[in-house]
Design a binder for these strands. Structure first.
Lengths: 144, 144
DNA sequence: GGTTTAGTGAAAATCAGCAGCAAAAGAAGT
DNA sequence: ACTTCTTTTGCTGCTGATTTTCACTAAACC
């Protein structure tokens, strides 16, 4: 009865098999609930089950991205993307330009805009990512 | 007198030197006005001036990103990011999940939210990126 | 023009992510 | 549970995109 995870359901809906590797990668993503690079995810998976291979983690990340469960974003100077879970199809955060700290926030008033955009551009919209860039309170204090 | 480009001004403001490599990378970014991968940018720079080295292109892209001029975004299928110019500090587009077509749009009603967020989280916000994911009109038609 | 030092080009080093294949394990039906 | 049919997996070696190193060039400023 661990098919509760809505993400597992999404896999099912798309005819994908629920494998050990995918389950573990999903668990890591849900547990960590942060913005992890592939390397960090691979390490976490390794810690949870050394039997899961690197390649499968990459394959899972790729699959989840194609299904809209995940979204890779580029943070800081690293060209390795971090992955964020698109819970409910959307995600929002503020990234500090100085210290790269990421501050997630929940409410976005984008439902109206989504509907307007669907009408205006004549397309269907399933989700969105909203990123703000700025300087966090700590870094502003440090500057002064 | 080609210091018109507002981006050149930004470089100046940050005490960065206006070098040949940076000028050319900027020109490519402004001319192409699309979502180009580092490889595409390197090729365009090469075509414009073979004297500019790869490494400098990467260094410029990195610098521009740190200054908020550019933003790397993930494009399906390629592990290398595409770069978008953050004209005026922000950028908005819709990505089709089927054909990966990108549709830029200009107006976003995010000024209010930006100010609310600044107050609520006690930080300064300089810009934002808003991505919508969906299925474009063409792909919907093709499905039917 | 001379000085200073950030920035550069070239080549070597690094490392994330991918490909190919035999073997393993979901899913579905019996 | 057993069988069968595919989908996935774990390996391992490889590729090509970034990064680093370092001696050299050229902005910026006097």
């Amino acid at each position: 009865m661990n098919s509760q995870s809505p993400y597992i359901q999404i896999l099912r809906q798309h005819g994908c098999r629920i494998t050990r590797a995918r389950r573990i990668v999903l668990r890591v993503l849900e547990d960590e609930a942060r913005h992890n690079t592939s390397t960090q995810i691979i390490e976490a998976v390794e810690a949870l089950d050394p039997g899961v291979g690197r390649a499968s983690v990459f394959r899972s990340l790729d699959l989840f991205t194609r299904l809209g469960i995940l979204r890779p974003i580029y943070i800081s100077g690293s060209m390795t993307p971090a992955y964020v879970l698109m819970s409910g199809g959307h995600h929002h955060h503020v990234i500090c330009s100085k210290c790269q700290a990421i501050h997630d926030f929940d409410d976005c008033g984008l439902d109206d805009m989504t509907r307007q955009l669907e009408t205006k551009l004549n397309l269907r919209i399933d989700g969105h990512l909203l990123e703000f860039y700025g300087v966090c309170a700590d870094c502003q204090a440090a500057d002064a």
